[in-house]
Design a protein around this nucleic acid. Sequence first.
DNA 1: GTCCCTGCAAACTCTTTGCATAAAA
DNA 2: TTTTATGCAAAGAGTTTGCAGGGAC
Lengths: 132, 132
Amino acid sequence: MLEQKVNRNSHQREVILEELRKVKLHPTATTLYKLVCKRLPKISLGTIYRNLDLLSKRGVIQKLEVNGSTARYDGNTDRHYHICCTNCGRIDDIYHLSKELINIDSTKIEGYVVEGCHMNFYGICSDCRENQ
Amino acid sequence: MLEQKVNRNSHQREVILEELRKVKLHPTATTLYKLVCKRLPKISLGTIYRNLDLLSKRGVIQKLEVNGSTARYDGNTDRHYHICCTNCGRIDDIYHLSKELINIDSTKIEGYVVEGCHMNFYGICSDCRENQ
DNA sequence: GTCCCTGCAAACTCTTTGCATAAAA
DNA sequence: TTTTATGCAAAGAGTTTGCAGGGAC
């Protein structure tokens, strides 16, 4: 059995979590790094990655895999979904879906014990439509 | 307006497509590369990537982003979904879902013109449960 | 004092790209 | 002959990791 390490409270980790919770736009590790740098100029990208990994494994934050290439992070762990603009890449939250969709985690799939479902929508946001 | 280049039929592209359609397990570019190498020993990974990109942009194949890190490819473009085993990483097809889920693409989301939805399930496959 | 966490830099993985040559039309 | 596609190798982006020193408890 794997022994779980006891985590210490580091100032860096607190600041990373605070800054992630402040922003709405689901930043990448690098974007978050720049934000955290304003408060902790000496922090390194490695620390950002290590803490984002630790926090998402603990379920304190959510790691999103919306756009293939780059991981994005969400400080909000309430059950919700995301929609990504295929033009500008912005990612918005979706809270209101029909009941059938909200209950999607209980879907039965032959041969599997289902643990969950990731669902991401794609489309064009209103800003991009206006700027055509 | 962007001018669309006319694609020539290359032998490499044909073989890549044939091999992708043969396998059921949604290979990565590297896995497919190894398969294609058996028939075309001198092919390069770059050619694999270039053709997978071209074919998925044309809609001939599907690029999957199921597991974050590495892209996987599916030669089957029928409307279907995927479930990924969180233990061993295998990816299976899902063809039968309830009507509400099948119609998910027509979901309305405020502020957006929805183009589509990517939906991936996660769970433990039967092989992994048996081997516990 | 112990052991986890950090900063730094190097390494790693996956993917893309530049270039000269080969192949398709 | 013209233009696209290939093989090769190098470069790029994003992420992970080894290590010595610093910090939490």
